[in-house]
Amino acid sequence: MLVFIARRLVATIPVLGMVAVLVFLILRLSPTDPAAIIAGDYATTAQVEEIREKLGLKRPIVEQFVVWTGRVLQGDFGESFFFKKRVAELILQRVEPTLALAVSTILLSVLVAVPLGLLAAWRHESWLDRVVMGFSVLGFSVPVFVIGYVLIYVFAIKLGMLPVQGYRSLWSGFGPFAERLVLPSLTLSVIYIALIARITRASVLEVMGEDYIRTAHAKGVAESVVMVRHALRNAAVPIVTVVGIGIALLIGGVVVTESVFNIPGIGRLTVDAVLARDYPTIQAVILLFSVVYVLINLLIDLSYALLDPRIRY
């Protein structure tokens, strides 16, 4: 197992290297100029040139890349072109909202979707199955921003029960923290509930025809025990995969939801950085995403061994 983990971690190095080169090149070759953006809409050509010089953007691309890579290898992601803050500090400020939103969304999604998928499989081709699958199709089809605005209109504007927007840190009290997460988590979880419920149903249905399920039924084991202990556990591998990828996507930032609910998370930081062509921030955020993806995929793989004793590394 340890050898497997070590091998996987070592394999991330070329992946991260390629990501770094690609991101660096794409940014440098795009027809935009951070210096012109920083200088402001009404700056002169000379002012723009001066800033370009200051940012080191007039140096050859190879030289810029070597300088940047050298710093990153020392753990220094540099300073944002715009914010006059270290990139690491900027990212750290944004991690908590994104993590809070990701955790609450995944918890809500799993708690709702897995039982729904299980019920749909248990009552396969009944009205219950059709309702769950109908909701699933709807959940996939309605854009996130539509769900977000509808929830805001009903619960924040019309009923005045919840805030329209914003984020409060957990350290400012659980009440303000939780109330601001309800609507964005609900909004985001719709699509994950749809996805996880569908996968759960399909996976459970696949194992329902297995001999051990028939044996359990023949032994007179209670239906609930058959479904949860025998069917769900054996169907867990694809469900965990989807949940894991969902977590990775959520940590990568959910731009639309963060914008609609004004949550200052990683997704918003990424969009702001891209719009401003803030190279150091974009590069650091994308490298961070890559690391998160690799680690979560590793955790998913490791969880397979726990769920299915036949799998060994």
Partner: peptide, 18 residues
């Protein structure tokens, strides 16, 4: 000064008194 990039969200927040 709050950064609310989505105009509709800002208007909703004003209507809700936030």
């Amino acid at each position: 000064w709050l950064a609310i990039p989505d105009h509709q969200t800002a208007v909703n927040a004003l209507l809700a008194g936030e």
